[in-house]
Design a protein around this nucleic acid. Structure first.
Lengths: 163, 163
DNA sequence: CCTCACATTGACGTAAACGGCAATCTTGTG
DNA sequence: CACAAGATTGCCGTTTACGTCAATGTGAGG
C-alpha cells in the first residue's frame, strides 16, 4: 500500500502534493507540536490527513493556514477564539467559491461577498490603527535616540575640554 | 487639613499639580481599577501618592506611564514581565538624568546611554518588524477586496444578461 | 450624625494557551 | 526482527492576567 510517505523527494507523482510531518511543520512554523495539535483540537486547523499509522500529514495549504494564524495572533494579538471565528468566515467564503462553478444565484453570492468584505474591512481598520500606533512609537523612540546622540556629543566635548 | 482633593477644578495652586482618583484613571485609560492595582502590585507602576484616607491619587506622569504600558502591551504584545524589565531600564535612565546635574563622570554616563540605546534599538527593530508584517497583511487584504470588487462587477453583468 | 457610595487589602477563582507525562502504537535501521 | 526514536490520545498541571467576593475603612450629602 503506497501512501506516498514522501521521503527525500518523490517526484514520481505529477501532482507534486507535498506533505510534512508534524515535526517538520513545527520546525518551519516556529510552533511546537503540542500547539499544532492544540490548534487542530480547537478547530483552528481542519483535521489533517493521516498516514496509514494515524500520523498527521500537513499539506502546503495547511502550512499557509498556520502562517496566517500566526500573523493574526502575533501581529494583531487576536485570541484563538477570534481567529477561529475569522477563519470560519474565510472557510465559508472558500466553500462559496467552490460552489461558484455550478450555482447561479448571483445575488446571494454578492451578499456573501459583502459579508466577507465587512470582516476584511474591520481587519484592515485594526491593522491601520496598529500601524499608526507603532509608527508613533517609532518616531518617539527615534527622537530619544537622536537626543541621546546630542547628549553624547556634548559629553565628549566636556571630556576633551576637561583634559 | 487641606489635601487638595481637586474636585471640579481648583486653580488655586500655581503648581497646577493635578491628581486623579482610580475611577477617573480607569475611565480615561480604559483599564479596570483591578488592573491598575494589579500593575502597581506587579511593579509596573510605582506606588502612587495616597490621600489621608489611604486612597490612591494618580498624577499626570502616572497616566503617561500607564498609556505607555498599554502601548507596549496592546501594540507590541509584550508580557507584563517584559514591560516591567523595560520600564526598569527607563527608570534607571531617568534616575541617571537626575544625577546629571551634580556628577561629572562623563564616560560612565555615555556607557549608560549606550546601554539604554541598546534596548531602544531592539524595541525599534521589533516595531519595524511588526509594521512590515502588518503592511504585508494590509496589501493582501486590499488585494482581496479589489478581487471581490471585480467579481461583484462580473456578477452584476451576469444578472443583467440574465433578464 | 447617619448613611450610602466608593476605596483598600486579602483571598480565592478562572479563562486562555499551552506544557508535560503516561500508556500505547508506528516506523526506519542495523 | 528487534529496538530505539518519534507519534497519538488522554489527562492533569501551570502561568499569565486579571475577576470577584468579603471584610473593613473613608467621606461627602441630607
Amino acid at each position: 500500500m503506497m501512501i506516498a510517505t514522501n521521503e527525500h523527494f518523490s517526484s514520481e507523482n505529477i501532482d507534486e502534493i507535498r506533505s510534512y510531518s508534524i515535526d517538520q511543520v513545527a520546525a518551519q512554523t516556529g510552533l511546537t507540536k503540542r500547539t499544532l495539535r492544540y490548534y487542530e483540537e480547537m478547530g483552528l486547523l481542519p483535521p489533517t490527513d493521516r498516514t496509514g499509522g494515524n500520523y498527521r500529514r500537513y499539506s502546503d495549504e495547511d502550512i499557509h493556514r498556520i502562517d496566517h494564524i500566526k500573523k493574526l495572533r502575533d501581529l494583531l494579538g487576536f485570541s484563538l477564539a477570534d481567529i477561529r471565528a475569522m477563519l470560519e468566515v474565510d472557510d465559508e467564503r472558500g466553500m462559496l467559491k467552490e460552489a461558484y462553478r455550478q450555482e447561479t444565484e448571483a445575488a446571494a453570492k454578492i451578499d456573501q461577498l459583502d459579508r466577507g468584505d465587512g470582516l476584511i474591512r474591520r481587519q484592515l481598520q485594526m491593522i491601520e490603527q496598529k500601524i499608526a500606533g507603532l509608527e508613533q512609537m517609532r518616531t518617539t523612540l527615534q527622537a530619544t535616540i537622536e537626543r541621546h546622540e546630542r547628549i553624547r556629543q556634548q559629553l565628549s566635548d566636556n571630556i576633551s575640554s576637561n583634559t
